[in-house]
Design a protein around this nucleic acid. Sequence first.
RNA 1: UGGGGCGUCGCCAAGUUGGUAAGGCACGGGAUUUUGAUUCCCGCAUUCGUUGGUUCGAGUCCAGCCGCCCCAGCCA
Length: 578
Amino acid sequence: MSSDTPTTPTHHFIRQIVLDDLAAGRHGGRVATRFPPEPNGYLHLGHAKSICLNFGLAAEFGGTTNLRFDDTNPTREDIEYVEAIKADVAWLGFRWARLLHASDYFEVIYRCAEKLIRQGHAYVCDLSADAVREYRGTLTEPGRDSPYRGRGVDENLDLFRRMRAGEFADGSRTLRARIDMASGNINLRDPALYRIRKVPHQNTGDAWCIYPMYDFAHAISDAVEGITHSICTLEFEDHRPLYDWILDRLDLVGDDSLTEPLRAAGLDLPRSRPQQIEFARGNLDYTVMSKRKLIALVEEGHVDGWDDPRMPTLVGARRRGFPPAAIRTFWERAGVTKQNSVIGFDVLEGCVREVLDREAERRFAVLDPLPLVIENLADDHAESIPFPNHPKDPSRGTREVPFSSRLLIERDDFAEVPPKGFHRLVAGGEVRLRGVGIVRCTGVARDAAGRVTGLSATLDPDTRPGQPGAERKVKGTIHWVSARDALTAEVRLYERLFTAPDPDDDAGGGDFRDRIDRDSKRIAVAHVEPAAASADPETVFQFERLGYFVADRHDHRLERPVFNRTVTLRDSFAKAAK
RNA sequence: UGGGGCGUCGCCAAGUUGGUAAGGCACGGGAUUUUGAUUCCCGCAUUCGUUGGUUCGAGUCCAGCCGCCCCAGCCA
């Protein structure tokens, strides 16, 4: 990881657990975590919290983190997401120790199932999905035992092997854990361990027609990979007793026969008895994060794709120009707890400004041009003015900005009737042209409709840099570009996608679609200095006084520059005006 | 009238074995500033969902209320 904001890691309960484990000498001093996405969608800002936590915590203690694809359900997963997920994790700045799949362990998981059967802890159930639901009971009423719960070990083993052999139809049978149909915890009411799905798997092809359920596969995968701290979100709290139940019965650490297939395949991994720890996922206001809604936004054309800069996806954030370091410090700042919370999107933007102020070079751009002619300069006046690339970092060097008598300034940097407190240009008034000197407005041209079409001004030569009057104070400083030298660029101005802090809240009627801000994307033709246009894609600049803009990852060309506005600068004048 | 979690400043969030409420963001004020940006100062919870109790002393212990979140996929 490169230059990070050194946010002091605040003390949180998971860090404390790791510290305690280390102090107690558990796991031989090892810290191993994993990030286990299901390859069925794009990663978003919420996933980033988990990624930062898992990778960050392990790294902090010299441990390792595996990237493991939780591919136990071939009917809903697709290999197309695998590469995207890998790219996102890498972009965020993390490197996995090993790249693995739950499907790498299918043979091990199968052996685990047989072991449970032999122990009398699992049985093959012939109940249909509907029947299972009926037998399960409700939140307040206990369930009833399946009629197949009493099957003997031999019969279960035979049936399970025949399930694997493909003798039975999809959904006709399951392997279930024999736990407690009356448990208050519904996860313990004889949960399914294996189901029949005669569907080819993206990784194992048609080698299997039975697939393990998440709870079973996940616990085993963690143990088999030597994970020490299995970090997941709050909704899995209820699953922890099952996680422990499985691991306690299997003894993957002590029973070599279970993992023999891995070693035979050349995969020799350390084993462990992992601990599941749950934390609250991070929510952001003014956005939606559920997979279903994200898909709807894309498929219904409300946005321009998964990587639309307004999307909370990591590819979206990337295209928006959010630096990975900003996302990392954002989640570090948000903290890790078990409290459900919603963090303001503006906090993220604050982190973005913080790293960009430090990292981004400065350039000039005018988004809404108003011509300004300097009368006391020759019409063909041409010079080149050196500007520092970064105001606080001389090592970033300088660039040459062409200057002439015909400039373009920002239309709202001039006012015929200035609002109170206005520091910019007014008819007859003075303002500083950044890096040039003080200019006085001597004329205002209007069209037939009375709209201002241009300004004329005189430049006070004494106030040019290096001259005795250069230090003279004026209230305002505005930016400019040379009309003749500026290049036009497409600039995409993005706002938050939703108009409501909680787009998911349907209490006021309608659904999240009704809260989409249709003006959240606007396109402007900007005039930029030459040194802005020549940037590589994904370069972020601060267009002085306007905000941070990133050269579009896909569309930016030297001949046709395209910038996305990442975030505006903080603007206390605009804020006070409201 | 099931089980599991959670309630500390507007938003996040520290608060070790009870000893008299960190920090960040936001906000208000001021200073610097050729970006109304950045930076820099200063201010910002007699109070910890609530009611009682224990104690010399409770955010921290006990009890009762109240509120919010999650669980009835052969999804993860």
